[in-house]
């Protein structure tokens, strides 16, 4: 015979969520502070170098991505003033026009060349030539950190 005893009070199983809002706000503040719009989102394999320095934030970006055989995409050059998202250009003259406009606006304008390591040097040479024609003074070549095991 089962004896019915006085029901025991069960402690409610609950997760303490009061501090969740604090954590969420902390993360929110972190992401807002570190938020930076990346003007060129082309994924590429940058060359690795030992010598690296910080590139200026507001510099214009010229990205050169290699031809993609699988996607059937040709070699693409994109330019951005550093404020807007990058746009593709089709001829070298367009790069000269773009760079000249930027240099006219600010003679000390910096240019970042973001090129994949597999890009034929001929194309990088053409971009460098366009920048020289536009009287650009400061150029940065974007790279990844080289490590000893490479």
């Amino acid at each position: 015979m089962a004896l019915i005893r006085g029901r025991e009070k069960k402690a409610a199983a609950q997760i303490f969520t009061a501090s969740m809002a604090d954590i969420v706000f902390l993360l929110l503040v972190f992401f807002i502070l570190t938020y930076k719009v990346e003007v060129d989102r082309t994924k590429m394999d940058l060359p690795d170098t030992w010598v690296r320095m910080k590139v200026p934030e507001k510099a214009a970006v010229i990205s050169i991505s290699p031809p993609d055989d699988r996607g059937g995409l040709p070699l693409t050059i994109r330019v951005s003033t550093g404020k807007e998202m990058s746009l593709p250009v089709s001829t070298d003259e367009e790069i000269v026009t773009f760079a000249s406009t930027e240099v006219a606006r600010d003679p000390n304008k910096e240019f970042i060349i973001k090129a994949d390591e597999a890009v034929p040097y001929e194309r990088v040479d053409a971009v460098l030539d366009a920048l020289k024609q536009s009287k650009a003074k400061y150029i940065f070549l974007l790279s990844d950190q080289k490590t000893v095991d490479e």
Partner: peptide
Amino acid sequence: YFMITSAFSADRGMDFAL
């Protein structure tokens, strides 16, 4: 939103002055 749109972009490289 901020996690997806913020990118830890490559921001280092070699410089040279023309």
